[in-house]
Design a protein around this nucleic acid. Structure first.
Lengths: 232, 232
DNA sequence: AAACCACTCGCACACTGTACGAGTTTATCG
DNA sequence: CGATAAACTCGTACAGTGTGCGAGTGGTTT
């Protein structure tokens, strides 16, 4: 009956701290460095403690558990998203810049892809992002729930496009061994000749560029679709 | 130089087996049951062994490691997607059914959301799905790389929409304690009055229905956008 | 009978997150 | 100043994880 308490760092008052050296910020920064260097798998409380020359369990004074720590670094990531300065930008321009920036940020911090959805995104950076997006959409003429729907559509696309992309890259390592990839695709798809054939053709393209083009294709399509919803 | 070998069950010949009782299929089925019952976190080789009345390490005869096992159940999930029977269905109809079905399947097996992107999807069910989608798009008139782009756009949306949805649900438990959610959102967004206000309004809707409507909104928008790319 | 094969599984290793509680420093107050 | 309380540190321990290894078992083939 009581309804489980939803756990999030952002719903707790942080501990008051008189601390000199150690602090949440420092811990978050160190965690981010570890994550960027070694990935999500490479972050453990013990390693983090070692990096900060502290006992692993000392960190639990500043952070209730590992998930809370991850929530903090997660929000830090969204803080890196760059948006058009002016509030008066055309909504298509705004949305496009935001989408591209979100993708770049995730590519820069591949571990964050594993966190999307696994953790609540209630931090200030995340909220500020959606707040600005919604504002722009409203002034563009979207009304009521359509504002939600439009943002959801957009962010869903960015997430869904980028999450598998990042995962693939980190599975492959950074090798980009194109002939090997070709071979892999061909072998996996040997029962689907059409698929295999298309794979073969596309393998000749630069995958980096291709991803970019694909992203833009999807983004433009979505913006067109949303615009159609607007003019009625 | 050699280029790391990409690891996937589907790229290895399976072991030949004279086995009577135990088999890959049985293991996969048991794993699926465990996953549906207890989530990704609840699946461990030891528990799975116990369920099958075997030593945990015996499973490693049939499966190289846990990730391979997960690849197998993962493909099983995509096998549950239902598509229109006829190859002659209109592409919009086809895409729409596929998107909805994918979403439903993920909602039915929430643990699968955590696997999207983390594991290569090179199994027969996954490949068959993309193969059919691509075929339909081709006959609809999409050409060359546009076929990839369009499918990527569609599946990205489905993934990106559903992954966070599922994660949110499983964090909250199935409680759907609406007033509590209201409170949570309000507190988290206290620095963003507009956001908080909108949250408050929307909290009065049935979230289940709302998600469905949102999904359809996005889907229709995307299909419109893709169609615009087609008629040129 | 010997050799091979498919298969089982106990043990051990290196790790994980974190509860607990005892210890130490620092700040506040009478 | 001394005392009390609050802020902080951290060693130990527990219950778990995936899985490499190597010894063992039972059936089939030569």
């Amino acid at each position: 009956m009581t309804g489980k308490q939803f756990p999030s760092v952002w719903l707790r008052e942080p501990r008051k701290t008189t601390s000199p050296g150690r602090s949440r910020e420092e811990i978050v920064r160190a965690a981010m460095e570890l994550l960027d260097a070694e990935g999500l798998h490479g972050l453990s409380m013990r390693k983090l403690g070692a990096k900060l020359v502290t006992g692993a369990t000392s960190l639990y004074w500043y952070v209730a558990n590992k998930d809370e720590l991850l929530e903090l670094v997660y929000d830090e990531v969204w803080g890196e998203v760059r948006l058009p300065e002016s509030e008066t930008a055309h909504w298509r321009e705004f949305a496009s810049v935001m989408a591209h920036s979100m993708r770049q940020v995730i590519l820069r911090h591949p571990w964050s892809a594993d966190l999307i959805g696994r953790l609540p995104a209630l931090g200030p950076s995340a909220l500020s992002l959606t707040d600005r997006m919604r504002r722009i959409l409203k002034t563009a003429g979207f009304r009521g729930a359509d504002v939600d729907y439009a943002t959801a559509t957009l962010t869903s696309f960015v997430y869904g496009f980028t999450i598998p992309e990042v995962a693939w890259k980190s599975s492959m390592g950074e090798g980009y061994d194109i002939p090997a990839m070709h071979d892999i695709a061909a072998r996996a798809a040997r029962d689907f000749p059409d698929l295999a054939a298309d794979f073969a053709v596309e393998q000749s393209e630069d995958p980096q560029v291709m991803r970019e083009v694909a992203f833009d294709f999807g983004l433009v399509s979505i913006l067109d679709g949303l615009e159609a919803r607007l003019v009625t």
